[in-house]
Design a binder for these strands. Structure first.
Lengths: 140, 140
DNA sequence: CAAATCCGTTGTATAGTGCAACAAATATCG
DNA sequence: CGATATTTGTTGCACTATACAACGGATTTG
């Protein structure tokens, strides 16, 4: 029996290892979208349009960082901004058609890559693993 | 019933979210060691001394990156290099006493931080989560 | 209305990273 | 054995992601 403390160490080690590799893999998976731009595009799409400040808060990024990433996405034609009619300070960010297409494609490639990793796993194990991760993510 | 595909999407999303935040948190946790330098110090200690090429391979980093991180760790007095007597091209990297002390301290802080996150979890759930993560990490 | 606050941009600095070129040591093969 | 290839690490260069600070415009608050 491994014991709780040793299990926690395993979790820590494995999650850290994953984090270290994530950017590398993300860029390999889809060269046009970094982990961050992908995440931004995904968030604003999921929310049906949101503001840069929301993105910054959600990802714990500085607003200047978000501003630059958004500018980059806009230059690539993947995202459009419009001034919020209710508050002229803010902008509402939305993915363009091209952005949505790319996002769908990126999601699909990521899905395939992840799916390949779970070929040996039973449906039950996949479901439980997902539950644990969701629970972990929620608590922090 | 969520279904296998949707579980895989959850896993993907949660792991991605974790990766995004990991560096940020790591630097908050211990300002002297970044996620990468911490990982390098940990690896060479766990292996009882190893070479820069091994580090690069293990973390999928370019050798130049490792070279610079190792230089930085050496300048901080956390790590020492000695030429490998069996192969004068290579160097054997080892943590110094100061490096070991800092590593132990960083590990302890990380342990506390992780432990706090699992206060609501049963021992069984923690153990299963660790098993899943280890299994996931092994297959890639 | 004046002051404080919020939103986004831009200037500046830093860390992390990869690629390419290189030098030295070692391995391989004719 | 000797020429060539490979491995190991360093350095120059470029680029991305990031934070912090200063700013200008818009809105809220007192």
């Amino acid at each position: 029996m491994p014991g709780r403390q040793s299990s926690i160490e395993t979790i820590q080690r494995e999650l850290t290892a994953f984090a270290r590799r994530a950017r590398h893999k993300a860029s390999q998976l889809h060269p046009d979208l970094s982990l961050v731009t992908y995440s931004i595009l995904d968030l604003i799409t999921e929310r049906g349009g949101c503001r840069a400040a929301d993105v910054a808060a959600h990802f714990m990024l500085d607003k200047s960082t978000v501003s630059r990433q958004v500018t980059a996405l806009e230059k690539l034609g993947l995202l459009a901004r419009e001034t919020d009619p209710d508050d002229q300070r803010g902008q509402i960010l939305r993915a363009t058609e091209a952005g949505l297409t790319l996002l769908r494609d990126a999601n699909e490639q990521r899905r395939l890559s992840f799916t390949a990793r779970f070929t040996d796993w039973s449906d039950e194990d996949v479901a439980r693993f997902a539950d644990y991760l969701a629970r972990y993510g929620q608590e922090g």
